[in-house]
Design a protein around this nucleic acid. Structure first.
Lengths: 249, 249
DNA sequence: CGTCGGCTTGATTGTGCTCAACCCGGGTGG
DNA sequence: CCACCCGGGTTGAGCACAATCAAGCCGACG
């Protein structure tokens, strides 16, 4: 595991930022953007590197610009559950809390656009746009957490794995504006361990169920780190969910 | 199951409202309170009665004044998972969404202070206090959803049951300002079915594990619908969590 | 008195966990 | 260059925990 985090000065202006239209700052006007521009710092973390430790004081908040980070909760005996996934444009840090409740760890190389917590909170207090956007984003996260609870509490191992591929496929289709019906190919960088932590399974069970779905012809992992789903509707069927869940993301 | 919901005119003024200091309106000033006073309608539902059906259009939003309601998500084959619990002062309804994603069902007799969705959204748009409070409450819900995910994904049946009693005990201690350490007695109205839906278990497993905790002397259910916990620290130990989780609620 | 719903307990089954061996590819050092 | 190791992944055998199927209890209510 790498020992040090990389710190860069901000290489991108907000106007050119890839997450400009979806992040917490998406409703900001030019005056606010200028303030953010002055406050922001970019930081990059390597896979496995800790971004925040549970129980420690939080100094920084910010948005994921690129890559994926995981929120993890660990029991005293080491059992571990992922409780959140931060993708580009997602926000890290809870206004009003100064001690972290969860570990945050990079899943892939991940770049954050960060602010000092105190600076950001001052800005939020004076900027209804940011607060409104933060509320929208928090409500979305709560929705997906609830969907996730259904998966954790009631789905079988096979359904969990199928659901995960459905989620990843929908996400990719949404980002690339492709149609998820019919054949679908998307990349797949996550490790078996991360999948197991996400789904509340062991890595052995994850591996076995992936093999089973492959044998059933529902997914195809031949190339390196790419998945092909020949029949997306069939995979949805296997995930246990209503097939009419046409909402993306 | 009762077939009709009871509707009452609002019997309480906001100034006398039991949830005045904790609900979504807690930061409102007198002008806003007067508007709310004119908008609000009280509704009461009986146990098992549906308040909202998933997939239907949402007309009303509001706060729980008294009683408990459950958010439920159901798979096509009938498996059911509770994904939220609405207690007094909790808010029902997501600004910006007009179609419900979850069923909402009364767990006990429950009274809501409700507003027409459109009226409420207009008010929120012009009232930063309400929006700020809504953000705080949503962030709290997200935190507890994440704690819940750890329980669903990684805890054993016995730990789940112990955790549930710990949560209920803490909540009661918080509301009644008593000290949860040492002997603790609190009421316990929820059915086995609701416990099973909450914990991702079957009612038989719930029943067996409660019996086991009783035999182990960790809880005592002799009186009608009251629990006695002689040693709260021991119950926390059994729940698998860190014993230092001193945060209430 | 009979029924019904909520709950408990027993017997059995089965899914997913545990423990263990092994494969494969990439990096490192002799 | 090959040997070795190491981390991530796969597969197998056996087991344990919770689900399932089933019977019966108890209190409320008609």
């Amino acid at each position: 595991m790498p020992l040090s985090q990389t710190r860069n000065a901000a290489p991108v202006t907000c106007a050119d930022c890839p997450i400009r239209h979806r992040a917490v700052c998406s409703k900001c006007e030019s005056a606010e953007l200028e303030m953010l521009e002055r406050m922001k710092v970019y930081r990059t973390y390597q896979p496995g590197e800790a971004i925040v430790w549970a129980g420690e004081k939080v100094q920084m908040t910010g948005s994921v610009v690129e890559g994926v980070a995981m929120l993890l909760r660990t029991l005293p005996d080491g059992r571990r559950q992922m409780v959140g996934l931060l993708l580009p444009s997602d926000f890290l840090g809870r206004p009003g809390r100064d001690v972290a409740k969860f570990d945050v760890v990079a899943a892939t190389p991940v770049t954050f656009c960060m602010f000092r917590k105190s600076d950001f909170e001052r800005l939020v207090a004076n900027s209804p746009q940011i607060e409104t956007r933060l509320l929208e984003m928090t409500l979305d996260e709560l929705d997906s957490a609830r969907e996730w609870m259904l998966l954790l509490g009631r789905k079988t191992a096979r359904e969990k794995i199928a659901s995960l591929f459905v989620i990843m496929g929908r996400r990719d289709a949404y980002l690339n504006r492709t149609e998820p019906r019919g054949g679908l190919v998307f990349p797949f960088y996550i490790t078996r361990e991360a999948m197991a932590d996400y789904l509340g399974l062991t890595i052995e069970t994850v591996s076995r169920q992936i093999s089973a779905l492959r044998k059933a012809g529902l997914i195809d992992l031949n190339e390196n780190r790419m998945v092909r789903v020949p029949d997306f509707a069939a995979l949805i069927e296997e995930s246990g969910d209503d097939s009419d869940g046409g909402v993306l993301v």
